[in-house]
Design a protein around this nucleic acid. Sequence first.
DNA 1: TAGTGGTCTAGACCACCAC
DNA 2: TGGTGGTCTAGACCACTAC
Lengths: 264, 264
Amino acid sequence: MNEVEERGANSNSAARSKPAAIQRVSIVSQLVDLLGDRIRDGDYQPNSKLPSGEALAQEFNVSRATVRAAINVLATHGVLRRMNGVGVFAAPNPGVSNSLNEPTDFYRLIQQNNHQPGVENINSMLFKPSPTVRQELGMGSADEAVMTWKVFTADGSPVIYCENTIAVSTLGETLARELKQTPTLNDSLFGFLEERCGLTTSHVLAEISVSRAEECDFPGFDYSDGTPVLVIKETGIDTNEKPIWHSVELYPNNSIRFGLLRRR
Amino acid sequence: MNEVEERGANSNSAARSKPAAIQRVSIVSQLVDLLGDRIRDGDYQPNSKLPSGEALAQEFNVSRATVRAAINVLATHGVLRRMNGVGVFAAPNPGVSNSLNEPTDFYRLIQQNNHQPGVENINSMLFKPSPTVRQELGMGSADEAVMTWKVFTADGSPVIYCENTIAVSTLGETLARELKQTPTLNDSLFGFLEERCGLTTSHVLAEISVSRAEECDFPGFDYSDGTPVLVIKETGIDTNEKPIWHSVELYPNNSIRFGLLRRR
DNA sequence: TAGTGGTCTAGACCACCAC
DNA sequence: TGGTGGTCTAGACCACTAC
């Protein structure tokens, strides 16, 4: 019997009988979770060799190709390392943050930088975005959007200034009104869009630049002159290749450090 | 007959008889090149639909899995877009730069920013690196390294200040001496290491931060106070998971813009 | 030489989308 | 309903590494 969940038509019809929590989880992603757990739990010690691909395939009763796909994911995340002809090893330092490669929750980002996360100064408004943002989101010139902005703190000090813009047409009138009145709703933007709007962000197009604090336009952003600011502008793309949100994030004074894995 | 090159034992023994240019090119990467060429040449117009995976598999006489792997690569590079149940399409805007995801040659990076690239002020020295760099490169406290530093220009103006450090033990005494005397050797660091040292950089661990110009230590870096600087520190990792080079790059005053594709 | 990861194949079944 | 991409399998052969 598979250690991974039954799949295909079976799990699908099972999901249909329980419409509350539809989820079709691929074998690969289940395997990723299982192997990741074993590493976190110390079943596979840092630098130790994992069972061979063939052995894992037999253990989980899946094909070797599936095992390889899962190992691929974990290797890309820096959790596993593969050596040709030798084996697959648990990475020596699994705690390395890899934040820029994937869109990360701000809370987790601050925790990864070893600080206590918090949020302050949450606001929202209904407005007509700038032409630049309108174009990014494919909006007409008369269309309105909801913008929420907030400040994330680390150990009480502000470290991330963030504004999110979502078109009213994307949210729908009801949700737009709700979000405007309760901007805390999208504390996790991804979760909010998935659970409330059925919109999945498949990837994010980002642009990284630097600026001086005095050139940054953000309420309450009162750093002294000359403070350098890392600026990340992002556009979230959904599974239909349509842009669904836009955000501007300011990281002043190097308080948050970003890691990045670059592959050829 | 395959449109892609013969492979496996055949191409291998062929390569052995011509040891001058050993190269074993996978079918997938050949397919990536072929499809990429067709897009660049306009055979597949922007937004147009490509032949189905099955059709491409037949055309190139390979399996559908191989076609999918190649399409994966091109989709990750933003050249193709896949829509479930519909087809694969050439991206509408193939010119989007994606520089931060993969280590990029500085020349190409400057060209991507629509400027004429150049190099100035090339120097090199033999030295004992700082403890930080020593640790990054796994060097002993007595080991020496070759550092080369240079300034890249866009339309004649300096835009990238870069220093590369490689341990003498990595290069070997002869090459280290040669590199110290002729720092232009590593104009393309990747090419130099592969062709001269047989070292392939499989991936790069980078750290992104910001700084003020006056805090940056680089010869000839004389920006006026308050200029913000994007700092990227990189460590190149070879196929044996060993760090082989370290570099520090300064991008002052937002003259180079970085794009980034973030995936969940 | 044995064991490992790397690559590729042929085929199967599924979900999704347009007609 | 038919065509498409998404997933998974079983098996084959290869190159690389260590013994």
